[in-house]
């Protein structure tokens, strides 16, 4: 279990403010945020490399705030692997064992299991300089797990890998987490990784935690406009609420919730917007006519930008549908979206 209480860090040109975060025992938790948001600084504060201004850090209910990194019982895997280039694969993996002796003997109970699970047996005597990205990442994982740490910190471990290796390594991570039951805090900016691996997530921006919650909670019920935009809600409008209606610009939109006293924005995921040239084929709720202003083709799908009254909507549609409907800028279309998919923020 990792508990970060009121963590404040001051670095030249960057600071972390009042970070409160709890990763439960055995949980796989992701810290999501854009580049420069402070994700790695949080990890390096937990591991004890960065001096902290204020706050406390607990690992398995033991305070480690003032302990050096070697006394914290935390494993870390970096994006660039950080393997020791002068050592072989085996010596990299067993590097930490001498510091974790029990009754004078190096712990090795997990070693063969980890080496086997990560398919490293054929690589053990090789130099780490000549491994592929995926192999290097597996060695880095094995090295961190070999000393059986209480928690594992992963700093964008999949970002530097080729797409094929990335999928394999993601599966390996998932399997290892299930099999070892280790507590994992992973930093990433990749939603797929968060969806695939994590039970809960936190969104960090400019050194502050914006929202913490389960993956569906954060992705479908964002609590701030930043989170809404970050998780891909491309339609975020300031709105005035009145009962189960919200007024964005001149547009009146039906929403499902009545209790929106403190809310200021509405947000709609672009994939929740249905598009048709024919009004009859669309559900009746929030059915509005608009004009295509721009089409951004991403290959298999397109971003369809629409001007409706004084509001700009973005919908995502399959490229096939775009061709079937013969859509182009300037053409009138109808959109509709379920009031339940309009999120008040």
């Amino acid at each position: 279990m990792i508990r970060i209480k009121n963590l404040n860090v001051e670095l030249s040109g960057f600071s972390l403010h009042d970070i409160d975060l709890t990763v439960e025992k055995g949980e796989f938790f992701t810290l999501l945020g854009p580049t420069g948001a402070g994700k790695t600084v949080v990890l390096e504060s937990v591991i004890g490399i960065i001096p902290i201004e204020q706050g406390r850090i607990y690992i398995n209910n033991k305070e480690v705030t003032n302990l050096p990194p070697e006394k914290r019982d935390i494993g870390i895997v970096y994006q660039d692997h950080a393997l020791f280039p002068h050592l072989t694969v085996y010596k990299n993996i067993t590097y930490g064992l001498r510091y974790h002796k029990v009754n004078g003997k190096e712990p090795g109970k997990n070693l063969s299991f980890i080496i086997d699970r990560l398919s490293l047996v054929p690589l053990l005597e090789r130099s780490v300089k000549h491994l592929s990205g995926g192999e290097k990442q597996r060695v880095a994982l094995a090295r961190a797990l070999a000393v059986d740490p209480s928690v594992l910190l992963l700093d964008e471990p999949l970002s530097a890998l080729d797409p094929n290796f990335r999928e394999d390594t993601r599966e390996i991570l998932k399997r290892l987490h299930v099999e070892t039951g280790i507590t994992v805090l992973m930093v990433t900016h990749d939603f797929t990784e968060a969806h695939f691996l994590a039970q809960r997530t936190a969104i960090i921006n400019n050194g502050r935690i914006e929202q913490t919650g389960s993956i569906p909670e954060v992705f479908y019920k964002p609590s701030t406009p930043f989170v809404a935009e970050f998780v891909g809600m491309k339609n975020i409008f300031s709105a005035i609420f009145n009962g189960n209606k919200a007024k964005a610009g001149n547009l009146e939109i039906k929403i499902s919730s009545n209790n929106n006293n403190s809310k200021k924005y509405i947000a709609i995921r672009p994939e929740d917007i249905h598009v048709s040239v024919d009004k009859q084929s669309l559900p009746e709720h929030n059915s509005i006519k608009g004009i295509v202003s721009k089409i951004l083709n991403h290959g298999f799908y397109c971003d369809l930008c629409l001007k409706i009254s004084d509001v700009n909507f973005t919908a995502i549609i399959p490229t096939n549908s775009l061709i079937n409907m013969n859509l182009a800028p300037g053409i009138s279309v109808y959109i509709s979206f379920d009031p339940a998919n309009v999120h008040a923020i």
Binding site: F84, G96, Y99, R143
Partner: peptide
């Protein structure tokens, strides 16, 4: 030498001297 190598070493239990 990337300082991350030293960070990893310390996380694995080695002191600054080690």
């Amino acid at each position: 030498i990337p300082s991350r190598l030293e960070n990893v070493s310390r996380s694995l239990g080695a002191s600054i001297t080690g």
